[in-house]
């Protein structure tokens, strides 16, 4: 589902001593079926931006069009919220029903769906996040573990079958396994169902692994926007902004610094391993990889195929 954000600015508590400029002239496009990662230091305006896309905050300036619906038209807001699924930071804080099933059903019911359809969607959503509808469904959401609560809350949004899924730090505060699992569902939704996804995260590795494109925010502005590999290869720039590059990219950047003829745009461990092996093999023909001049014969670089 396409989203166009054009010249959007937002100031909280405008014209009071508590004024906070959260967004300054932000423009952004999300194409249908794309997976966009948003990164940026704390307070850079990421949460504000995604709430504006869901029509929950009215920006002080600028235009937002979601799926052809202009958000400045009040009558469109409801429809946009039906099509966009927004999962907030710590979504388990929104649980309120007596049973997990009832809570997950809350969203679909608000959509006005018939009961049979609601029940079916609830089961599907619970299964999608790895909760057994028959075992966990009838329990109170407050009797679940933190990780299970998080999953139940996410199921509550997935059950609405949003055409655009926005997640704000969905894995914050989970153990590595819970993190893997939750991001696994998101990845599957994107890969298998071509779900459009916007993921806000402080975890560079996750963004590197999942996103097609990365948007970097800093002090309310979009400062970088491009293909994932391209953005993360700009290590110095990211560090200047107080961010980090994923460990894999860091390794590639350091190897390159030492003279390895490598392309640094590897985002997964497997990719990186392949490139290092290839570089080592190519280098073995000469006097060892470290000895090779970095930019020698770029056309024959073993990693040439990695550029997009």
């Amino acid at each position: 589902m396409p989203v166009t954000v054009g010249g959007v600015s937002h100031t909280y508590l405008e014209k009071t001593p508590f004024e906070a400029r959260a967004l300054v002239d932000v423009s952004l496009e999300v194409a249908d079926g794309e997976f966009v990662g948003i990164i940026g230091p704390t307070g850079s305006g990421k949460s504000t931006l995604i709430q504006i896309i869901d029509g929950l905050i009215r920006p002080t300036a600028g235009r937002v069009v979601v799926d052809g619906l202009d958000l400045s038209v009040k009558a469109n807001l409801r429809e946009v919220r039906r099509r966009v699924g927004l999962i907030f930071q710590y979504p388990e804080h929104q649980l309120f029903e007596e049973t997990v099933t009832a809570d997950v059903a809350f969203g679909p019911k608000n959509l006005g769906l018939p009961e049979g359809e609601v029940a079916e969607r609830v089961r599907e959503a619970l299964r999608l996040v790895g909760l057994d509808p028959d075992r966990i469904g009838p329990r109170s959401p407050f009797a679940l573990s933190g990780g299970q609560m998080r999953r139940a809350a996410i199921a509550g949004v997935l059950a609405m079958r949003p055409r655009l899924l926005i997640l704000d730090e969905p894995a914050a505060g989970l153990d590595p396994r819970g993190r893997e699992e939750i991001l696994g569902y998101v990845r599957r939704l994107h890969k298998d169902l071509r779900q459009t996804v916007v993921l806000v995260s402080h975890h560079m590795e996750d963004v590197a692994r999942l996103a097609d494109r990365v948007v970097v925010m800093h002090r309310g502005k979009v400062v970088m926007d491009g293909p994932t590999a391209e953005v993360f290869t700009a290590g110095d720039r990211l560090r200047e902004l107080g961010l980090r590059v994923p460990a894999v990219t860091e390794l590639m950047l350091r190897l390159k610094e030492r003279g390895w003829p490598l392309a640094t745009d590897a985002l997964t461990i497997e990719e990186a391993a392949r490139r290092i092996i290839a570089a080592a093999r190519a280098g073995a023909g000469r006097s060892g990889p470290a000895g090779g001049a970095p930019d020698e014969r770029p056309g024959e670089s073993p990693t040439g195929g990695g550029h997009r």
Binding site: Q51, L56, R78, R81, R82, L86, F88, H93, N110, V157
Partner: peptide, 12 residues
């Protein structure tokens, strides 16, 4: 915050 989260789930 909670109000926004529930509005995102379709509460009016």
């Amino acid at each position: 915050k909670i109000m926004k989260a529930q509005m995102a789930r379709g509460t009016d």
